[in-house]
Simulated assay, not measured.
Amino acid sequence: MRILHTSDWHLGRSFHGEGLGEAHSAYFDHLVDLARDEQVDAVLVAGDVYDRALPNPRTVELLDDALWRLLDTGARVVVTSGNHDSASRLNFGSRIMEHAGLHIRAAYEGITRPVAVPRRGSDEIAGHVVALPYLEPSVAAGVFGLDEGTHRAVLSEAVARSRAQVPDNGAPVVAMAHAYFAGATTSDSERDISVGGLGQVPTSVVSGFDYAALGHLHGPQTLEEHVRYSGSPVAMSFSEAGHTKGTWLIDVTRGAARGEFIEAPVHRPLATLVGELDDLLAEPALAHAEAAWCQVTLTDEIRPAAAMDRLRARFPHTLRLSFESARKDDAPLTYAERLAGRDDVELCCDFLAHVRGGRGPNATERTALGHAVAAANRHDAETMRDDGSMFDLEALR
């Protein structure tokens, strides 16, 4: 059986305020072409189809179009729900859709209905798919009558119940699961599903299958030769800047699975920049970041004025800006050290940048601050002369 393994589409999600609709559309174009060119028997989507339980209408339309086009390639499509999906909403009409070749497993009763995948162009069974939706331990334990409400316990029970329904006809058997398996590497963009010490699931739970198509973690990973995460097809956070996104193309036979990772198109690359502002703006080697979504950490000892505006002049897609002083010693600067060498106008500019979260005054504002400071100094000088102060301002100068 030849399959495409994908997961964690998170349709409807944004990237630090930037919509990902175009990125998902480009991926679906790629996935449809891949399914047709590689003549796959099935496309497996291992959970987190949507990013939220109530997706907006445009997001639903995007999924509808993608599924219709995938079915048009002649492949069967198997979809499970993830921890971000509303299982009941995703499961609506699932039995009707099976007649068109779309198999959705989001409800508990679907666990005992493995999917028999015919070989493309014939009635011969190429393999079976045990498609397990995300199982919330606190709920699933009650449904299954278990005393232990952990991911390991409920997933083990689901595997046992579903595997018992697979006919032993010599065809390979593939599992789909949405969970955090031991040995995998997380990123910042996944929702924690281990609340309450429920922990990880050992790969032994799915080791009896010819292939396990996993979802939930956003980086592609091979835990064992036949146990893999596809990862998300588009980046969800800057922690994924080092990821190569894509889809697993898997040929599964009884007792073996051979995989090839097919890279997905990159809508916009990610870049994480660290350094002093002037250095970043002048560094020729950073030309690649000019078209990327950027996360910038400035290490200037004094926060530069208008830092974001200056950054976006060269890196227009900068989305995140933070400050981290390059000062190495642990002792904080004293008040006198912070003021050393700073005149009144510069101190006012620093304060304005501080209250604005790093954005200092522009040229017009700086001129106005200069006039205000000069006027204040003149007022102080006149006041000292008028009230008979014990020292003369001109003498101090």
Rank of each mutant, 00 (worst) to 15 (best):
residue 99 H to Y: 13
residue 101 G to M: 07
residue 102 L to G: 10
residue 106 A to K: 13
residue 107 A to M: 09
residue 107 A to Q: 14
residue 108 Y to V: 12
residue 113 R to G: 06
residue 113 R to F: 04
residue 114 P to L: 06
residue 114 P to Y: 15
residue 115 V to T: 12
residue 115 V to R: 08
residue 115 V to M: 10
residue 115 V to G: 06
residue 116 A to L: 05
residue 116 A to P: 03
residue 118 P to D: 13
residue 118 P to Q: 07
residue 119 R to W: 01
residue 120 R to D: 05
residue 120 R to M: 08
residue 120 R to H: 08
residue 122 S to F: 02
residue 123 D to N: 08
residue 124 E to M: 05
residue 126 A to L: 05
residue 126 A to Y: 08
residue 126 A to C: 06
residue 127 G to A: 06
residue 128 H to W: 14
residue 128 H to D: 06
residue 130 V to Y: 01
residue 130 V to G: 07
residue 132 L to G: 01
residue 134 Y to G: 02
residue 135 L to R: 01
residue 136 E to I: 03
residue 136 E to V: 00
residue 137 P to C: 12
residue 138 S to G: 11
residue 138 S to H: 13
residue 139 V to R: 14
residue 140 A to E: 09
residue 140 A to V: 00
residue 141 A to N: 09
residue 141 A to W: 14
residue 141 A to Y: 12
residue 141 A to D: 14
residue 144 F to N: 05
residue 146 L to H: 13
residue 146 L to C: 08
residue 147 D to Q: 14
residue 151 H to A: 09
residue 151 H to M: 09
residue 154 V to K: 00
residue 155 L to F: 11
residue 157 E to N: 01
residue 168 D to N: 12
residue 172 P to E: 04
residue 173 V to E: 09
residue 173 V to H: 00
residue 173 V to N: 03
residue 173 V to D: 00
residue 175 A to Y: 01
residue 176 M to Y: 00
residue 176 M to I: 12
residue 176 M to Q: 06
residue 177 A to E: 07
residue 177 A to C: 09
residue 178 H to M: 13
residue 178 H to P: 03
residue 179 A to N: 14
residue 181 F to E: 08
residue 182 A to M: 11
residue 182 A to S: 15
residue 183 G to K: 07
residue 187 S to P: 02
residue 188 D to W: 03
residue 195 V to I: 15
residue 197 G to L: 15
residue 197 G to F: 13
residue 198 L to Y: 07
residue 199 G to Q: 15
residue 201 V to C: 11
residue 203 T to D: 14
residue 203 T to Q: 11
residue 204 S to E: 15
residue 206 V to S: 00
residue 207 S to V: 02
residue 208 G to P: 03
residue 208 G to W: 11
residue 209 F to M: 04
residue 210 D to G: 13
residue 211 Y to A: 04
residue 212 A to I: 08
residue 212 A to E: 03
residue 213 A to Y: 03
residue 213 A to S: 09
residue 215 G to F: 02
residue 215 G to M: 03
residue 216 H to S: 13
residue 216 H to P: 13
residue 217 L to M: 13
residue 221 Q to M: 14
residue 221 Q to F: 05
residue 223 L to E: 08
